[in-house]
Every structure is written in structure tokens, then in C-alpha cells.
Design a protein around this nucleic acid. Structure first.
Lengths: 168, 168
DNA sequence: ACATACTTTCAAAAAGTTTTGAAAATTCAA
DNA sequence: TTGAATTTTCAAAACTTTTTGAAAGTATGT
């Protein structure tokens, strides 16, 4: 397979992969393109490669910058802004985990704390089931939260090299 | 807070939580409702509680059954089918991980295998960047795949009780 | 075999999300 | 300053996904 074709396949799969993970198709495609590009690209390069409009490109680049996945690069003597993606995949994973944890897990845990204090007689089986379910989710959620915090701080070598031992 | 209100808040948040995780709102809401209901419910109960149509209810219940998150229950002497959700949250998490791994991670790894064999001179920096990126993703993806396999087999006590030690 | 209760299907409609592109805002060199 | 290059915004359009509900299908007791 030729590089051009391989690139296209990667970009397109990364795009649909993204849609299952709460990241929109274009954002994931731009990310994929920058991941496999050796040099930084301009907005116009990206628009042309992916056949998308200026507005869409701009909006999604900014979102990628918010997530910390893409950086603006100013090349000396150039008026245009260039963009480049973090290439270390472990760092990429950590950035994504960090962002989603903040946006999703943390608000959910706050809500669960509140809901656990529901009024009512614990002998009522509906009340009991509700509280038990909420507590169960909260317990696991809190643990996941801690685990992810540690993962965010960890080195890749931990994940690739050592975790496996633990499971034995 | 009263039980009714707490239930509603939980259902609604679980619903929007789901949409960030590739699960549609209604499917997640039905799941939430069944999670906090002490007794099995019928399709009509669900339709009424969540104010959704018969078709939508039916379709999403079936999808939940496919995922293994919900079971059909036949009560003796009753014509109607009842539905109930797996209440053990650790099992729920494992079922979801298993399903998404199969649907998303595995196909992605297959593609990466194929793409890694791209033709071209490795001294060309574009070819090199492409191969390096793909290999990096593949390496981490394979490790994640193994780790998730072990997680799927693991007991909750491992996750809640022991993982934390490992990170120290 | 029939009638009734119940479940499933699916085309069309509604809702939700993403994309476009032209206009406005900003930046920068002269 | 000015004006050309570049970036950003946002309302409307296009696209995608979800939902509806009526009709078709299936199962059950008599």
C-alpha cells in the first residue's frame, strides 16, 4: 500500500473511531492528519487535505488546542500559523483521559454524592435498591477516578512493562 | 430530595453520560431506570416512566439485551415479558468494556497491522513519521487489549482493593 | 381455529449535530 | 495609518441519528 492511501485510511478510521468516543469526526481527522505529518501544517493545508471548510477547520483546530493535543507553531519569517500534534501516544492518551475525566467522571461523581442522600425509609425496597445502586456506582467511580489520576501521572513504561505482572 | 426526583435526575444524567460513550440517550435511560427499580418492569411501564414510544422502547431494550445488560424475565402466570437489569456494577462495567473492545479496539488493531506495512523508503521523513506513529499506537493498543482482557476476567475486589498498591 | 394480548418492524418525521461560507475582526508590515 | 493577509464567528444549510406510531407479525389460552 502507498503512503497516500495508507494515510487516507488511517485518517478516515481515526475519524469514525473518534465518533464513538465523544470526539467529532472532523476533530479526530485533523488530529490523525497532524499525527502522521512530519512537518507542521497550516489551516489551508488541512482544509485542502481533508476537503473541509475554513470555519470547520478553524473551530476544530481550536478544540484540539484546548484539549492540549495540538500546538500552534510560528515559523520565523512566516505570517501564517502552523499546527503540529503531540506525537507521543502515551502523552496523547493521558491528555484525553484527563480531559474526559474532568468533563464526565467528576460531574457524575458529584451528582451521585447528592443522590445518595435521598430521603425515605430504607426498608422500602425501592428506596433501598436506589441507594444501593447509587452507592455501588459511586464506589467504583471513585476508585476509577483515583486510578486514572495515577495513570495520568505515570510513565508509559509502567503501563507497557509492568501492569501485566499485576494481573497474574 | 424525594425518591421520584432523585430517580429522574439519575435517569437523565445517565442518559447524557451515555451519549458521550457511544450509547444512545434512550438506551442509557432505560438502563438507568431498570438499575434503580427493585422489581422487573414491562415495556409499558418503561414507556410510561420515560415517555417514549413503543417502537423506541422495544428497540433499545433489545439492544440492552444484546449487550448483556438487561434480561427478559417471565413471571409465572403472566402473559407479558418483564425486564430487569444486572445490578452488580462491576459486572456491568465488564460487559460494557467487553462489548466496546470487540466493536472498536479490535478492528482498529487489525487496521493498524495492515497500515504498518506501508511501502516506501524509511529515509523519507513522511514515511518514517507515518510508520512511527502507527507503531506507537499499535504498541499501546495491544497492551490495552491485553489489560482489558484481564480486567474482564478479574474480580471486583482486585480493582477496588489492590490496583492502588501497584501504582505506588 | 379463533380472538386477544403482546411484540416487532420500518418508513417517515423530528430532533440533534456538524458543516459551510461569507462577513467581521484581527494582525502585521510598510 | 492603511490595506492586504490571516483568523474567527455564527446563522443557515446539510447531514446524521433518533424517535414515532401504525401496521404486520407472533404467541397463547380456550
Amino acid at each position: 500500500m502507498k503512503l497516500t492511501e495508507a494515510k487516507q485510511q488511517f485518517i478516515s478510521s481515526w475519524g469514525s473511531f473518534g465518533t464513538h468516543w465523544g470526539i467529532n469526526r472532523t476533530m479526530a481527522q485533523i488530529h490523525a492528519l497532524l499525527l502522521v505529518s512530519a512537518d507542521p501544517l497550516t489551516q489551508d493545508d488541512i482544509m485542502e487535505e481533508l476537503n473541509i471548510s475554513r470555519g470547520n477547520t478553524n473551530m476544530n483546530i481550536r478544540e484540539l488546542i484546548n484539549w492540549g493535543l495540538v500546538e500552534r507553531v510560528i515559523l520565523p519569517g512566516e505570517r501564517k500559523e502552523y499546527f503540529t500534534a503531540e506525537k507521543d501516544i502515551w502523552k496523547v492518551v493521558k491528555l484525553i483521559v484527563k480531559e474526559r475525566k474532568k468533563r464526565e467522571l467528576e460531574p457524575m461523581l458529584q451528582l451521585l454524592d447528592k443522590l445518595e442522600g435521598v430521603e425515605g425509609d430504607k426498608k422500602d425496597k425501592n428506596v433501598k435498591t436506589f441507594i444501593d445502586t447509587i452507592s455501588g456506582i459511586k464506589k467504583l467511580g471513585k476508585q476509577a477516578d483515583k486510578t486514572l489520576d495515577m495513570m495520568i501521572k505515570a510513565e508509559e513504561s509502567w503501563f507497557v512493562g509492568n501492569l501485566i505482572k499485576f494481573f497474574k
